[in-house]
């Protein structure tokens, strides 16, 4: 079905064209004057200056693994994030805690946990799907590297970015 777009009715000022040009020029000249006297600054001097302290709480930066207060890597290698990740950035090789281990009751942990940051689209689905509150999107956004291999965050790197998460549920402590 064709849609008829009604044209706005222009008054004489708008039809005259010049007043609009002039008011536009006035804004430009105002900015020009402010610039000359150093009253505005439009370029941020990145990387000397950064946005970091203005980042909103919900900012989605690099995904990272966290430890809890007891020092345990919270991830139990359930591989749900690996499954949900749309660009398949995550690769996990699960491991089993040895019988005598401090965390043996948790049974499973990620032996290897790689996130390919070339693939990651910072969607946050891994954080959302994780049943263990183990993976979070942190505020790190400047992920760089010289090679493709550099861009794959392994478990150590992910834990380094992630750090410790306080105040999360410690459900495994209840388990015998």
């Amino acid at each position: 079905m064709a849609i008829t777009v009604s044209r706005p009715k222009l008054n004489w000022r708008e039809r005259a064209y010049l007043p609009a040009i002039l008011s536009g020029m006035a804004i430009t000249i105002k900015h020009f004057r402010n610039m000359l006297f150093g009253r505005t600054k439009v370029t941020m001097q990145y990387p000397e200056e950064k946005w970091d302290n203005q980042m909103p709480e919900h900012y989605r930066g690099a995904p990272a693994l966290v430890r809890d207060d007891t020092g345990r890597v919270r991830c139990v290698a359930c591989q749900l994030c690996e499954f949900i990740c749309p660009p398949r950035a995550i690769k996990i090789i699960p491991g089993e805690f040895a019988a005598g281990d401090r965390f043996a009751k948790v049974e499973k942990f990620p032996q290897e946990f790689d996130i390919d940051m070339i693939r990651c689209i910072y969607c946050g689905l891994c954080e959302e799907v994780c049943p263990e509150q183990a993976i979070y999107l942190r505020k790190d956004y400047a992920i760089t590297g010289f090679t493709r291999a550099d861009m794959v965050h392994n478990k150590e790197k992910l834990l380094e970015i992630g750090g410790v998460m306080h105040g999360v549920v410690l459900k495994w402590n209840e388990k015998k």
Partner: peptide, 11 residues
């Protein structure tokens, strides 16, 4: 029943 589906192989 323990709610440990994340580590349970049957999940």
């Amino acid at each position: 029943h323990p709610l440990d589906c994340p580590i349970c192989d049957q999940a």
